[in-house]
Write a protein that binds this DNA or RNA. Structure first.
Length: 594
DNA sequence: CGAATTTGACCCGCGC
DNA sequence: GCGCGGGTCAAATTCG
């Protein structure tokens, strides 16, 4: 760490930031850049790349010499407590510590006496630039390494959370038997279906949506868990257990305590089936050691499936194009639907587990339902990455969110309000019905409905076991329609929305800002995304990824959402989205495939 | 001719 | 135990 800190020293003043007060973006090259305070003393207009590691260092450590600013030199001199940190300056260009590194680099060339002072000065600048470039390249490399390390740490963290969840659920089982007699079933479902490790602690405070952040779990933890959940084992555990419990809970609504006890047992025993009435299941003590050793591989023991993300869009084409290569491996006639259901698997890499189902809606055959399942095990092109991020983020949202309608709404309302998304804490109600959770379906599924207006969905009676929550994709609908995207998605507007001129599809944010201040940040976000590249999948990924990256009230994300929001924990998704908005080919849209 | 698609058979979970 | 439905497999077929 010390070594790395010294390596960064040469540019430390260049990266003059007060970390806690800044928001950061992820640039295309993977470096974090300051999104809010790129007012470097020497170059206020250029986003300054910041190595991730610096974010973890103390603020005062960042305050180092600015080679390009005498003023800052004076300022630094005024800081007495910076003395120890100025010491490493000598390792950049072998400058002695006493040398004024401001641009007084003549000491490096002191042996050249025949050269004019200006030439020496210029040579020094060139050397300095060269060294800075070399240093920048090293920072790039280190940045990538750090991201890899962070990914690994996050995965390990998620696995540990899965183990913790199982242990907490076992505790909750014992505590549940009394409350289950008096509490509403939905409330209990909420408790058990909440995959967050705080679920057990939330039993006593479940009516308070903020409890998720008050039980020793920070929003950052929650977010990191949510963001990385789709690709990790514990999510499968959670989704299945949640689904099992949901099903069992529904079947037990009219049953006596015996059935309730049995249903609670299934939480800690994934192999529990409806036919199992073995009283030994109630004996947690007997199998506890074995269970603890099997916690991690439990997903391998249970043939359950992953969460699914269903996208509904209007399209005449047989399949939407999402940037991936698919191979059809089956087709079935689903019951109650005259249209066949096609099964596809990803063929971009051998063994990629991602599959999708494509089926038309029976009631409206112009609506194409594409259901994604799994995570890609290979690099993806930008457009495909966008969709993959979308599905992953949506799945994470599904699996990390609550499922009973009222509390789901409260929770997400609270969640987004705290995120600065809707800083006025009043969600536009038309923004709260674009995604639907269905935890009682055969598989936990989140449906992103891009076919209906928010108003229509708001008045639609949801399935009894599904719930809607704020997923502000409404701006994207408008943008998509304004761009004349191949998808025949209608344009939907708030009641008082003034439609922009047809040519103003890229400037919708202004029009909406005048009518809905609540969602202006999101509108700007999506508008910017669309403006940079009218790509359906990218923009969709933007919307969801932004949501996933939004809830960080302790990190200064109060001034709206930046599409380049460089969430460290979300580096994969964010990078993919950024790349997709900048580089995705025009053909990589969700749309009619000719 | 290789790749992609079609389609009937098969497997598995679930409900009765 | 049996039937049903969803999902997958793999041989046959089609396509480029």
């Amino acid at each position: 760490m010390e070594k790395q800190g010294r390596r960064h020293h040469i540019s430390s003043k260049l990266f003059h930031h007060s970390v806690p007060d800044c928001s950061f973006n992820v640039s295309d090259d993977g470096l974090l850049v300051d999104a809010t305070n790129n007012t470097s003393s020497s170059n206020p207009s250029i986003p300054i790349p910041i190595p991730i590691k610096q974010l973890f260092r103390q603020t005062k450590e960042i305050k180092e010499m600015d080679f390009f600013s005498d003023n800052n030199i004076m300022n630094d001199d005024a800081d007495d407590d910076e003395e120890p940190r100025r010491q490493p300056q000598q390792d950049c260009n072998n400058n002695p510590p006493a040398v004024n590194t401001g641009l007084n680099l003549l000491t490096l060339n002191s042996g050249i006496s025949s050269t004019s002072a200006s030439d020496i000065h210029q040579n020094s600048n060139n050397k300095l630039m060269t060294s800075l470039q070399v240093e920048l390249e090293r920072l790039h490399e280190e940045n990538g390494e750090l991201k890899t390390t962070l990914d690994q740490m996050t995965k390990s963290y998620s696995q540990l959370q899965a183990q913790l969840l199982i242990a907490m659920q076992k505790q909750a089982q014992n505590r549940l038997r009394e409350p289950i007699k008096c509490e509403a079933n939905g409330m209990l479902a909420r408790q058990f279906m909440d995959p967050r490790p705080s679920a057990a602690a939330a039993i006593d405070h479940v009516r308070d949506p903020s409890v998720a952040f008050s039980s020793g779990k920070t929003p950052a933890d929650h977010e990191a868990f949510s963001l990385f959940a789709p690709s990790n084992l514990n999510i499968e555990v959670m989704s299945t257990e949640r689904d099992q419990y949901q099903r069992r809970l529904q079947t037990n609504i009219n049953c006596a305590e015996e059935a309730l006890d049995r249903s609670s047992q299934c939480l800690g025993s994934p192999n529990y089936t409806s036919k199992s009435s073995d009283p030994n299941l109630l004996d947690d003590d007997n199998d506890e050691p074995k269970r603890s050793t099997d916690q991690v591989p439990v997903a391998d023991q249970v043939p359950f499936r992953k969460a699914r993300v269903s996208v509904r869009a209007r399209s005449e084409a047989p399949m939407i194009s999402d940037g991936c290569q698919w191979r059809k491996y089956g087709q079935k006639m689903a019951k109650g639907n005259p249209c066949p259901r096609a099964y596809y698997r990803c063929t971009m890499a051998n063994g990629c587990p991602v599959r999708k189902q494509v089926q038309r809606l029976a009631e409206d055959k112009t609506i194409l339902i594409t259901t994604y399942e799994g995570n890609h095990s290979h690099p993806l092109p930008p457009a495909a990455t966008a969709m993959a991020n979308t599905t992953s983020a949506a799945a994470a949202m599904l699996l990390s969110g609550s499922t009973t309608s009222k509390e789901a709404h409260q929770y997400h309302h609270h969640h987004l309000a705290n995120s600065g998304f809707f800083s006025n804490s009043q969600l536009p109600f038309f923004a709260s019905s674009m995604a639907t959770l269905s935890a009682s379906a055969p598989f936990p599924t989140i449906t992103l409905d891009l076919t209906q207006s928010p108003m229509q969905q708001f008045h639609r009676i949801p399935p009894p076991s599904s719930s809607t929550f704020p997923l502000p994709l409404h701006g994207y609908h408008q943008l998509m329609g304004g761009l004349g995207h191949p998808i025949q998605a209608p344009m939907y507007f708030p009641p008082n929305y003034k439609a922009p001129p047809p040519s103003a599809g890229l400037s919708l944010s202004g029009g909406q800002r005048s009518t809905s201040t609540h969602s202006s940040g999101m509108i700007e976000t999506v508008s910017a995304a669309i403006a940079s590249d009218p790509n359906f999948t990218a923009a969709l990924a933007e919307a969801i990824s932004t949501i996933m990256a939004a809830p960080r009230p302790h990190q200064g994300h109060q001034g709206g959402i930046n599409i380049n929001d460089g969430d460290i924990a979300n580096n994969n998704a964010a990078r993919g989205v950024v790349a997709s908005t900048n580089n995705s080919p025009p053909s990589a849209n969700i749309g009619v495939r000719s």
